[in-house]
Structure formats: C-alpha cells, structure tokens
C-alpha cells in the first residue's frame, strides 16, 4: 500500500521554527513504522533525524508521537496507524523535551529525574548466603516495573508537565517503586527527598495516560499510587512514634 508520512522537521541551528514535510512511499501494512522511516532515510532523504536501535521494542530508542499517540516506532505496525491506501501518518517528536533535530529530543532532564530517585539497590547489610533469598511471590510484586526501558513515552503522554514542568515524571517513580517493592531494598528514606515533595509523587492526578501508552504494559499509575501509600504509611508510623 501507499502511505504519506507527515513528519515534523526541525534543526534548531538553521530553522526558525518546526515544519512538516511529507514523504510518499510504498510499504507492506505488516511492516513497522520504523521500517518506513528507515526507507525514507536510506532512499529518499538522508537528512531525516531519528534514533533507533533494537527495532523490536526492548531498547527504548525510538519513542515518538505517532498520530498523536506516544509509541515506539518499532512496535507500531503500519496497518495499526494507516487505515487505507494513501493514508497519512503524522509523526512528531516526544513532548516536554527540547527538540535537538527532527524526531530527536534532548532527554537530559528525563534522565536527571531518573537518577534523582537513586535507581539502584540500597542495602549495605552483608549477604548471609550466596544469594539473598526472595520468595516467588515477593519477586512478582515488582515484576512489571522491571520491564521499564526508559523510552520516555510516558513522560510525553503525561498531561501534568503542561502545568508542572518540574514534575519528576512517571518513569522515575516506576523505577523508584521497582526498588521500594523489592524485599531486598532498604532505600525508602534515601529516595524520599526526590519523591515526597510537590514535584514528586504528589503531582500525579491519576490521568492514566502513562499507563495507556506504556509499550511495556507497566501499570504505571497503580505503581505511583502504591508509592504514595508507602510514603503515607511511613509518615503515619512516624506520627505514632512522636
């Protein structure tokens, strides 16, 4: 089938403002949108800028807005976004991050916020046996959050950033929860400064846009709410103690 890719172009060094450019190409409806972008880049216009790597939804490089939804280009089949021959697919960069070139955005803030939650196992106690023992049920409590590939689709989908740019964002909270819910971790106190503040977990208003768009099927909103409960429980305990 033939499709028209309507792609937002922008080179901050030379363009005054972003603009759309259209490319017509023939594709198989079962191909990935990334295949179509690669076809444009290799055979029509080498100057088109976008990131990619694994091409099957596990590396997180090619998150972008496709027909207004935040998705991975390699996990989006043409037939899902083009209903009939000659259909136009609109492709834009992720929101709330400065565009560096076409579909490439600067993720420095996104990763700084990720780092702020201390995303590593915190537990200084020596390990008694060779491995720390953890039951199957305990392991499954945070299973879906270990899926996160830091693609930043949830960051772009979240409506909070429009009014609260300092919000730590869904992915960082998911990464915090991944450790907070791990029986081997002792890091709640260390992570509180990042999480327990207006721009931390308390900015979330349960819009569920992150959960809807997550290409790794993480129940993000639920994990944010569980994180809020952990913090509330900690404060309740502190209240009793004083």
């Amino acid at each position: 089938m033939n499709i028209i890719l309507k792609i937002q172009r922008y080179n901050p060094g030379t363009d005054e403002r972003p603009y759309f450019q259209e490319y017509t190409l023939e594709v198989d409806p079962n191909e990935r949108l990334l295949d179509a972008l690669m076809s444009v880049k290799r055979y029509q216009d080498g100057s088109l800028g976008f990131r990619k790597s694994c091409a099957h939804g596990v590396c997180g490089s090619d998150a972008m807005r496709i027909n207004g939804k935040d998705r991975l280009a390699c996990k989006t089949l043409i037939k899902e976004v083009a209903e009939q021959d000659g259909a136009t697919i609109t492709v834009e960069p992720l929101r709330y991050m400065p565009v560096q070139r076409d579909l490439i955005v600067d993720q420095a803030d996104f990763f700084a916020k990720y780092r702020s939650v201390n995303p590593f196992l915190i537990n200084d106690a020596p390990v008694a046996e060779k491995e720390r023992i953890q039951s199957q049920e305990e392991r499954m409590r945070f299973d879906d959050t270990t899926n996160c590939i830091l693609c930043a689709a949830c960051y772009s989908a979240c409506p909070i950033f429009a009014k609260q740019p300092a919000f730590i964002g869904p992915a960082a909270i998911v990464q915090a929860f991944r450790f907070l819910a791990d029986t081997r971790d002792r890091g709640l106190a260390d992570r509180l400064p990042a999480l327990d503040r207006p721009a931390g977990v308390w900015s979330c208003e349960n819009h569920f846009e992150c959960t809807r768009c997550c290409p790794r099927s993480i129940l993000i909103t639920k994990r944010i709410n569980q994180t809020k409960k952990m913090i509330e429980k900690l404060h309740a305990g502190e209240g009793e103690g004083s």
Binding site: F120, L121, V127, K130, E131, R132, I133, Q134, S135, Q136, R139, F142, D143, T146, F179, D182, R184, D185
Partner: peptide
C-alpha cells in the same frame, strides 16, 4: 551470578527463594 544478584538483579526464584 551471585554478584549480580547481590547488586539487585531480579532473577526468577525457585520455591525455596533461590535463583
């Protein structure tokens, strides 16, 4: 493998809670 587990890698577990 034990070092990776000790550093937080979430391996699947046996019924006894081992890797």
């Amino acid at each position: 493998v034990y070092d990776l587990e000790n550093r937080g890698l979430p391996f699947n577990r046996t019924p006894e809670g081992r890797i």
